[in-house]
């Protein structure tokens, strides 16, 4: 069997799955967002749905909220994950516990984390009760709004809770594979601790960090259940808005939902493109 045929046969099942399900999903979504559905006689594509999306103020507010959630969560999680990985690389009391908790956290679904954050940070949650116990507040309403709030603090907290271990585990694996010798070389050539990190370790773990954080960005940009549990009602995060439109009793709203899904994909791609370019330029120079 020739190598070409072998490669083709090995890839065929995966490619079929991805093309039919993933590309098919995107393609049909695109068609329907253009009001193009030959099955029910809609054969003249148009941009009506996009016009509706782009002329609605709610869409822009939702977009800004979602962008804020994704950028803040990704940046915070990445920074904290680097710190955590640096910490876990060293021998110290409690390292084994944190290692285990990191892996344990990977197994906990986002939805459970979101509910946990809700019970901790809502105005009648555990922290509000502690504040009341210490006499800092007297009624639940006095506690600052950390969930359902316009700054999406609860959502971001949840993402940081879940994604620090995710990025951290990947970075830790990278660091352990690299060893400490590169940094030793840098130190012996005159780099101080910070310089050895900034000019040597960070560029070396950068590919892993970049791919992990891109995954986090995309996930936080398109996840539904977390903003549905913890997010404000208006403006809602983009995925929540799209799902609402999609399940609207008014079937007319469906193309609008599809248009929004396509816009989410495009915006996310654009953001990832910018993010990769900016971070490449700044880290590895």
């Amino acid at each position: 069997m020739s190598d070409r045929l072998k490669i083709f046969l090995l890839l065929a099942p995966a490619l079929t799955a991805i093309i039919v399900l993933f590309m098919g999903g995107l393609g049909i979504g695109l068609a329907r967002s253009l009001n193009y559905m030959p099955v029910i006689g809609l054969v003249d594509p148009n941009f009506d749905a996009y016009v509706t999306v782009f002329t609605s103020q709610e869409f822009y507010l939702s977009f800004l909220l979602t962008l804020h959630i994704s950028v803040t969560s990704t940046v915070l999680s990445s920074i904290l994950a680097i710190g955590a990985a640096l910490l876990l690389r060293r021998q110290f009391i409690g390292r084994a516990i944190i290692n285990f908790l990191f892996q344990l956290n990977l197994t906990v679904p986002h939805l459970v984390g979101a509910i946990g954050i809700l019970y901790l940070f809502s105005q009648s949650g555990s922290f509000a009760r502690l504040a009341a116990e210490w006499g800092m507040i007297s009624r639940p309403g006095d506690f600052p709004a950390l969930v359902f709030d316009p700054y999406a603090i609860g959502i971001i907290l949840q993402y940081v809770w879940k994604e620090v271990p995710f990025i951290g585990v990947i970075l830790l694996a990278n660091m352990q594979a690299l060893g400490e010798d590169y940094e030793s070389v840098a130190r012996s050539l005159g780099a101080n601790r910070w310089q050895a990190f900034r000019h040597v370790l960070l560029p070396l773990i950068f590919p892993g960090l970049l791919s992990a954080s891109v995954m986090v960005f995309a996930f936080t940009f398109g996840a539904y259940e977390i903003p549905a549990i913890l997010g404000p009602n208006y403006p809602a995060a983009l995925p929540v808005l799209a799902y609402r439109k999609y399940t609207d009793v008014d079937l007319e709203a469906r193309p609008e939902a599809m248009a929004m899904a396509i816009v989410i994909a495009l915006l996310s791609a654009l953001m990832i493109f910018l993010y990769v370019r900016i971070s490449r330029r700044n880290i590895r120079s």
Binding site: G29, G222, A223, P239, Y246, A261, I264, A265, S268
Partner: peptide, 17 residues
């Protein structure tokens, strides 16, 4: 691609498929 394209963007289309 599925790991870097937001889930909701694909989910609605797949539903139609």
């Amino acid at each position: 691609a599925p790991t870097i394209v937001p889930g909701i963007a694909v989910a609605l289309g797949i539903h139609s498929v």
